[in-house]
Design a protein around this nucleic acid. Structure first.
Lengths: 233, 233
DNA sequence: TAGTGGTCTAGACCACCGG
DNA sequence: CGGTGGTCTAGACCACTAT
């Protein structure tokens, strides 16, 4: 007898994926139990489990104990983006990185910042504006607010040398991170700093981080015109 | 003897995560072999493996056979977004969904479309412009190009009833998908269609899909001012 | 409460790749 | 070549939840 080649979890995944794509199972349909699939494909149940884990991660199926495995009724495109530290992003594109501190001062956090941090009471924070440059040209304008309570060290940092972005990433681990993408129109000051025209459409990445319930920092990374964020699935 | 509680892979993950955050292992450092960690934490190697899989998925460590496990030298924020079908997105926000076909015609694909599809020779495609409405107000303007070669059915669809978005999602599975986020300034026509002012900053989600090497469709989803895409990690 | 997925274990073999 | 991670198996028990 030719010993049938061993089945890998990717084979199982592809098999099921195919079955869904060709319509054998439609949105909302229930798939057989793992154990039955294992018997049918002649592999261990844990192999099926591994395949199902992958299909769940990619958003194709939903699984519930006792409820079984179902094809997700609402198809979604699930995309993953890596957002690196700005310096590395520029260097990886082959640019020469430059950094310039514009402004740093203690202030009352405005309402928008408080809302992003999900706190309701007034609060003093450090505001930091800085420019990241690629080959001498503006690349990203960073408008950041840092909580004194969570990050007392911020008072003693020399932000003219090292960006808060970099220091925080390596020194302030977070337990939660909110990300927000949107577009804004450049106001006069932003346009001047980014070396573009007022009214230009700018892509913004806004990020807020917490350690448990305590806000660490919230930052708007305002990109220059033409910036694209991309990924492949 | 008190029987030590069983260790779960999440315990292992958190243990290692903690060790990295507190600086016990810095960027680029090599972690012990799975087998050693298993002994030290008194669990099976496969439990460590499961934990490592999670840490790899979240971008915290890199693993290579023989090379071992290392803390990623370049920290990244890895974010996952679910992009639903537009109709469902509107309905989930509590809006009443509306759809309106603006224009549909066979054309030579312009250079930008060919580039997005990664094809070099001229090509006839179907261009479709449509508006998605929430509670009667413009929500997303869809500018789509569909390949006749990969999707011959597009000629016979009644696009006044059903959006190409929805039909393609349920009928044309893809093997590859490119996603691109950026900002544009509304031109006069776009502004009128979206019921806003020329020059407004608009957030754009561009998506191109292929079946193997054959392009299926490329689409710009142009959102109305104020649109935010968000996720939590 | 019973059915289903989630996880742990111990052991085995394989695949990759650094030295 | 040898060390390390990747995977498969068979079996067991647990945790959730639909009915």
């Amino acid at each position: 007898m030719t010993p049938t080649n061993r089945i890998s979890w990717k084979d199982v995944r592809d098999e099921i994926h195919e079955a869904i794509l060709t319509g054998r199972y439609g949105p909302g349909d229930r798939l057989p139990r793992d154990a039955d699939i294992a018997v049918q494909l002649n592999c261990a149940r844990s192999t099926v489990q591994r395949a199902m884990q992958d299909l769940t991660d990619s958003g194709l199926v939903e699984r519930r104990r006792k409820g079984g495995t179902r094809v997700r009724p609402d198809p979604v495109t699930r995309a993953t983006f890596d957002i690196p530290v700005t310096r590395r992003e520029i260097e990886q594109k082959g640019g020469r990185y430059g950094y310039q501190l514009i402004h740093s001062a203690e202030k009352d956090a405005p309402r928008g910042v408080l809302a992003a941090c999900e706190i309701s009471s007034p609060c003093r924070m450090q505001q930091i504006e800085a420019l990241h440059l690629s080959d001498g040209q503006p690349y990203i304008l960073e408008d950041r607010w840092v909580s004194f309570e969570t990050v007392p060290e911020i008072r003693d940092l020399d932000l003219t040398r090292q960006s808060a972005n970099e220091w925080l990433v390596t020194n302030k681990p977070y337990s939660r991170c909110d990300l927000r993408f949107y577009a804004i129109s450049a106001d006069d000051r932003t346009a001047e700093l980014l070396n573009t025209v007022p009214g230009a459409a700018l892509f913004v990445i806004e990020r807020t981080t917490w350690l448990d319930a305590a806000p660490i920092t919230t930052v708007k990374a305002i990109t220059t015109p033409g910036y694209h964020l991309l990924t492949t699935i």
